[in-house]
Amino acid sequence: MTEARTAILERLSAAPAGGPPPLEDTAVMARRHWPAAERVVRLRKGMEAVRTEFLEAIPSDWPSVVQDFCDHEGIRNLLYGPGSNDGAALATAWDGEATLLPYDRPVEAFKTQLFTEVDAGFTSTVGGIAETGGILLMPGPAEPRLLSLVPPIHIALLRASTIQDSLWSAITNLGWGESLPPNALLISGPSKTADIEQTLAYGVHGPKRLIVVLVNDLR
């Protein structure tokens, strides 16, 4: 529809030039800033308010924290991305009852199984958001997009040192303003809805539970 394109752009370009837009004062965004330890507290508070669960870990023991959780919850299988560093580390250390399922082929090969048989998915994160609570994910070849979406439980590994002040500062610090992979996202909790009488209900389409394994790597 090149005619449509041409016609639309012509009409838009023909519009009389408006005055200059108002000045942009970004101070309100920039002043959202906290020390590292406080960022962790804020993130937890924000995410727990929307029913995210936290597991505490240290850099050396997080795989066993994931494993203990899975064993405790009776999780039968855990889907993960074998191509990611954290995924590989998890597999190397794994000695749990749950079967580790590598997400290593195109989804078309096991879509039904993914929707009906997988209990949980494990992903890494590229950061967190202190201001509102939230984790940042960059799915891709190593950790496919549906890992954090389709399984009823999503377990995400977050290192405290990667928590940013706000989405605003994360965009700059992660270089998202210049280029982005095909998918990137912020997640603040398990899937939820308030479409029936504004009553909150969790687990409507996506994960019913979001478990953040918070690795204390500060200092």
Partner: peptide, 29 residues
Amino acid sequence: AILTRSATGQAVSTYFNLISGPRGEGEKD
């Protein structure tokens, strides 16, 4: 930031999804 607060009184939505392309090279979904 102002959208979610104005709309439903949430500081942040559950998902903020940035889509910049179809399945990329090596992607499995």
